[in-house]
Design a protein around this nucleic acid. Structure first.
Lengths: 247, 247
DNA sequence: CGAAAATGGTGCAAATGTGTGGAATTAGTT
DNA sequence: AACTAATTCCACACATTTGCACCATTTTCG
């Protein structure tokens, strides 16, 4: 196990201390003076575990935590100097995170790191390498990176607004079936009731425009909803070919 | 509808509250104090829908979710107490899942449960537990994919209007018996009373036209209704009207 | 056979659903 | 507060579906 660990702490001493201890256990460790710096690097090359000091120049540890959590479930260990912070952390603590109050024993931290990683491995080990959500959605010539929220069409960036992004993501993840308007309104807009609204159509409209040059196409199921189809494997109507429908 | 719902939450109050509300709506509800317990039971006797608290003793809700997803497509609703969880959930591939943030309105949850189940039923016509096998209806040379709403006849697409689609689906699923007009009006048009209308005939007429080249045929039961038959194995008693021989 | 009831076919008009452009509103920033 | 982007709303055009009236045809039954 050659796990990669990122540490963000503005105190060089602590950073190096942790680095030393963790490397002694066989981990790969990279340190950052600020959380922002860490986040920047993490966005492009993820680590297996992150250690965040709460108080840092720039955005504090909580902010970085939230940012990271938007796209990743990497285990995070928070370091805090104040009890009040500890209280706060406890209030927001979620399953895979932990925290340490300064001063702390490096040995204990190392063992915590080990146990967290072990647990993580248990979870992801069964499903394969990745958690249940693919980082990358792909359909025809469209690629969506769910971690970076980057979307590309034919290799070129495809700028999507939040709603469009969600819609496209939802359609792709349900590529095998037709999706009703009601469902879209529920899942994306959160409308429980049957409101007479056409926001879904609006977004579909705009999305269609943006992906008009793509092989992916949003087809309309009259009186029901929509479905994502691939132009390339779409049977043109007046063909004699006896395309057996399977699946 | 006597659907079975499993709930895992370590908080007795919430569990019982939900139980009460859901049972009031006619659901069958079984509660579990942990997700592990729920999973254990579910493995042997599946439910139609599952409600999972995220934070529980033992494995947390996410873990259970993943475990269940390895073998089942049952709809799952997650309950979360924290925004950070909500963020995480939104990042997940939420194909058939939903989530609620505590505190939540039981009424809303119930309506969510209903809409999820209804949707599930729309797609598969069965309990959501099974994979997509039952989503395909087949009769003679006609194939209906209930997930994609695609209909084909002899391998070629058969464009149907919503009413025609419903009618044909209903006839196919009741292929073994004759269906009365009143029943059709009730099930498809929602007419409770005996209205003097011939909409059913209209739709049958249009459907007949579209499937005229098919082996499937809608035969009229005089004075009663209709029934779907297969031309190829048409050898039952009621066929003298079709012969060339008279007198 | 012939009349009444039931069913089928045709055409049309009303109802419903969808696509489009742009205006109005809202949300997010500075 | 002002600016911008995003979203929603709106009005209209257009397409499809649906229900119905009207008449033809078939079936039942006396």
């Amino acid at each position: 196990m050659n796990k990669l660990i990122y540490i963000a702490d503005d105190d060089d001493n602590i950073r190096n201390l942790l680095k030393t201890f963790l490397e002694r256990e066989g981990f790969h460790v990279t340190g950052f003076p600020t959380g922002d710096k860490l986040f920047e690097v993490f966005s492009n090359s993820p680590a297996d575990l992150i250690i965040l000091d709460v108080m840092m120049p720039g955005h504090d540890g909580f902010f970085i935590l939230k940012e990271i959590r938007k796209t990743s479930n990497v285990p995070i260990i928070m370091l805090t100097a104040k009890d009040s912070d500890a209280d706060y952390i406890q209030g927001l603590d979620m399953g895979s995170d932990d925290y340490f109050t300064k001063p702390f024993s490096p040995v204990k931290l190392v063992s915590k790191v080990k146990s967290v990683l072990k647990r993580q491995e248990e979870i992801t080990g069964k499903t394969g390498d990745k958690p249940d959500n693919d980082a990358v959605y792909e359909f025809a010539d469209i690629i969506i990176n769910r971690k970076t929220k980057e979307t590309t069409m034919k290799g070129k960036p495809l700028p999507l607004t939040p709603n469009e992004y969600q819609l496209l993501t939802y359609l792709i993840s349900n590529r095998d079936r037709a999706v009703s308007r009601a469902e879209l309104l529920d899942k994306i807009w959160g409308y429980e009731t049957q409101v007479e609204t056409r926001v879904a159509d609006d977004t579909v409209k705009r999305l269609r425009k943006k992906i008009s040059k793509s092989d992916a196409k949003i087809s309309t199921i009259w009186g029901y909803g929509f479905r994502l189809i691939n132009r390339t494997d779409e049977d043109t109507d007046d063909e004699e070919d006896d395309g057996d429908i399977q699946d």
